[in-house]
Simulated scan of single mutants.
Amino acid sequence: MTLSQLQRSQKAYICTLPDNFDLSSKLIEQGFALKTEISLAHKAPFNGPLAFNLHGTKMCLAPNVAQQIGIEIV
């Protein structure tokens, strides 16, 4: 399952990051590290950005980036 498939308020753990090293590095700097608990806060309409709760804050990702992050449901 990927981060883009997460339902609102459903909790999961990040288990894989994108293969692209530069993108993975940027995500890790923003807090999207392996084994991090994450939940979907908001999904913008018309394929807009997705807002996630992690580390006590909200972070947004584009849907195409969220599709590259693997998760495991809690």
Rank of each mutant, 00 (worst) to 15 (best):
P49A: 13
I71E: 06
I69S: 01
P45F: 11
C15H: 09
Q10H: 09
G31W: 00
L3W: 07
L6W: 01
A62N: 10
S25E: 13
Q5K: 15
F52D: 04
N64P: 07
K11V: 14
N53R: 12
E72S: 07
T36M: 13
D22V: 08
T2V: 09
S39T: 09
E29K: 15
Q5C: 12
G70H: 06
Q30W: 05
I14T: 00
S39L: 04
N47S: 14
T36F: 02
N53L: 10
D19Q: 14
E37G: 07
Q5E: 15
I14H: 00
L50E: 03
S39K: 11
F52I: 04
V65T: 14
I28K: 11
I38L: 05
L50F: 06
S4H: 15
P49I: 09
S4M: 10
G70C: 05
A66Y: 09
K35F: 06
Q30Y: 07
S9C: 12
T2F: 08
V74G: 02
E72P: 00
Q68H: 02
N64W: 13
Q30C: 07
L54I: 11
P63H: 05
I14E: 00
G48F: 12
V65K: 01
A62E: 11
A41R: 10
M59N: 10
F21S: 05
S25N: 12
E37P: 10
L34E: 01
S9V: 09
I38F: 03
Q30S: 12
L3V: 06
Q67I: 00
L17F: 00
I14C: 01
S39V: 03
Q67F: 01
E72C: 03
H42L: 14
